[in-house]
Amino acid sequence: MSDNKLVAETRTQFGKGAARKIRRDHKIPAVMYGHGAEPVHITLPGHDTMMALKVANALLTIVIDGDEQLALAKDVQRDPIKPVIEHIDLVIVRKGEKVTVDVPVHVEGEAAAETVVTVDAQTIQLEVEATNIPENVVVSVEGLEAGTQIKASELELPAGSTLVVDADTLVVNITQQISQEALDAEMAEAEAEAGIEHEEAGEGEAAEGEQPEAAEGEATEGGQAESEDA
């Protein structure tokens, strides 16, 4: 059974008002269904549930009136601002049953110098046993050169897993790191195409320290105009 055991309570009141009251009591409204059973509306302990769901595809043991049922969180609705779970849809699973889940991709190692590693697929869809869902799929990029691409078919899958996603799905792409000179050249080209011009330093302004010539007859420092005969 799962290590994530959550003691639930059945609920008979529904709607936004009832849901708000449940959340004020630091609990989470949820519904559990699957295998042809009627949906069961329950409340879950807020803190323990949030801790359990920090791990992707966490297998939960839901305890209702002493009876235990394995379940996976199929849909988790979170508040867009506050760190609060608003509602959870749970799907019932059974020991030995195969389920399809999105498993996170974890990259480890360092690629060759002056390369950039891009993870194109953050998760990979696999078919696995409900009671043996892997935490992640590990991809090593140690020493790989620019131009290397790792596709889904090349992944080393966890034991008992079957690939569901297209085998040609790009998972990791390794490219050459762009130099500062090349980046500056690209920026200059883009600005030129956009018609952006930069004024040269001092353009349109008098040179530093340069003073305009005094007009003929202009007052001198002493406040008197210079005469031609002076």
Score class of each variant (00 low, 15 high):
Ala112Pro: 08
Gly36Gln: 11
Ile196Ala: 03
Val84Ala: 08
His106Ala: 14
Ser227Gln: 11
Glu135Gly: 02
Gly160Met: 10
Ala230Asn: 05
Val139Gln: 05
Glu216His: 13
Met32Pro: 01
Glu199Tyr: 13
Gly15Ser: 10
Glu197Gly: 05
Thr118Gly: 06
Pro45Lys: 00
Lys98Gly: 01
Ala194Asn: 10
Leu59Trp: 02
Val63Ile: 15
Ser179Gln: 04
Asp79Leu: 11
Leu90Phe: 14
Thr12Ala: 02
Ala113Ile: 03
Thr12Gln: 12
Val138Trp: 05
Thr175Lys: 08
Gln180Gly: 00
Gly209Pro: 04
Thr61Gln: 10
Glu193Lys: 13
Val164Cys: 06
Val7Arg: 04
Ala19Ser: 15
Glu9Ala: 13
Glu191Val: 02
Gly160Thr: 10
Gly17Ile: 09
Lys74Glu: 09
Val93Met: 03
Asp65Asn: 15
Gly17Met: 03
Glu208Phe: 07
Val76Trp: 01
Ile92Trp: 09
Ala56Met: 00
Ile150Ala: 07
Glu38Phe: 01
Pro158Asn: 05
Leu53Ala: 02
Lys74Phe: 05
Glu228Val: 04
Lys82Val: 01
Leu155Cys: 13
Thr123Arg: 07
Glu199Met: 14
Glu97Lys: 02
Asp89Leu: 09
Val101Ser: 05
Arg23Asn: 05
Ser140His: 06
Val116Phe: 02
Arg23Leu: 12
